[in-house]
Design a binder for these strands. Structure first.
Lengths: 212, 212
DNA sequence: CTTGCCATGTGAATTTTTTAACATGGCTCT
DNA sequence: AGAGCCATGTTAAAAAATTCACATGGCAAG
């Protein structure tokens, strides 16, 4: 099929498929049908076939999908079969935690530079990385081939951080700060809200307690 | 309106509205129109009015929404205008980070007990909380009025953790482990995947680099 | 008290996404 | 080499979500 517009929900599900497929691989499964995979992911099997069809034909009719091959194909489709250099702005609790969380690196998202405007923090080292003033972002970004920005500032600093990133020619932003930011329309922004899921859960549980 | 079935996407947006409204309040805005709020949230204004209509009538025609009042109404609608006691299973890097992250508490999600099956960790204290073997979950849950479970184990321990939680009569689960879990259908599960957003961003950036 | 204004709340139209159904084509066994 | 099997890829139908458009009703001004 190879369509142009791909639903955002599809991307989210592809992330799920990767997770499940990697666990399957670890357990020694090397071929799987859309039906079985669908079951493991709690989705419809047509959904899986359609999601994959956006990007190409990865399966073998009458057989199923080769697990390792499918993982590779999905990763390639998403553009995560390579390294993405990132800049992190805001070395507070969360920023520090992310710097220490080496899973990011394992997945190909390498934090190449850390920024903070707090004079007490500038110059200090963390995980082998010197904390630098955001005014140097532009230079560092070019020097180190940084393409993505990660905002972990407080809410009221998020916009300023975004401005620095945009000015530095960054291509995309993940915003962990609890605030919306304005950036030029060609720069995608992903908002991460830690409470989102908790709210959703609380809502479902509350709802469930009524319909009995 | 007060409908029965509410789209999951609506819940996600309500979380965004809360975030934006709280920032507005801090800046001293006390009335806002759906149009303006829509702008700040990057959604359609009808979307906002419809999302809210699922739960009631919170605005004043010809005027708009009173910010503080709307925040309260949304929180009540979601069931987050109260305290939710939680149990955390898996005191590794992530689990420890969550225990220290007191924002959870500020939002009403209080971690009342921490569990881990590692004998080296059992008995130790963390943030004023004793780490306990998961076999004691059932007792503790009843004793401490715990309703929600938070799984922060490695992938291969997630199912076991889920079983403990279900057995303890927990009402809902947030799963941070990179694995799917099986639980009875009446227990909602929210999966948190840290890479989801990064994948999505990488994809959008990759895509953007083609259509020029 | 009445009139005009304006943003909400809602029903209808559109768009998007999901599900179902089936034709296609590769693999295996004879 | 040919036939049958079976899960994919795809087209069509169904369901769901979003957007549009406007009637409704509260507030303020005269």
């Amino acid at each position: 099929m190879k369509s142009e517009h791909i639903p955002k929900a599809t991307i989210g599900r592809l992330a799920v498929y990767i997770q499940v497929l990697e666990n399957l691989l670890r357990d020694g499964t090397d071929v799987i049908s859309s039906e079985k995979l669908a079951n493991a992911c709690s989705v419809n099997s047509s959904q899986i076939r359609k999601d994959l069809a956006y990007f190409g034909e990865f399966g073998v009719r009458g057989v199923g999908y080769y697990v390792q091959e499918l993982i590779t194909s999905i990763k390639h489709s998403l553009g995560i079969d390579r390294v993405w250099n990132c800049a992190l702005i805001g070395v507070g609790n969360l920023g520090t935690a992310l710097l220490r969380h080496h899973d990011f690196e394992r997945r190909g998202f390498v934090i190449k530079a850390a920024f903070d405007c707090d004079p007490d923090k500038i110059g200090k080292e963390l995980e082998g990385m010197e904390i630098v003033c955001p005014t140097h972002l532009k230079n560092q970004a070019k020097e180190r081939g940084i393409e993505l920005g990660i905002i972990t500032t407080p809410a009221d600093r998020a916009q300023r951080a975004a401005n620095h990133l945009v000015d530095a020619g960054i291509k995309g932003i993940v915003n962990y700060a609890p605030a919306r930011i304005n950036v030029p329309p060609h720069i995608p922004v992903e908002y991460v809200d830690f409470f989102d899921h908790l709210y959703s859960l609380a809502f479902q549980v509350t709802l469930g307690s009524f319909e009995e």
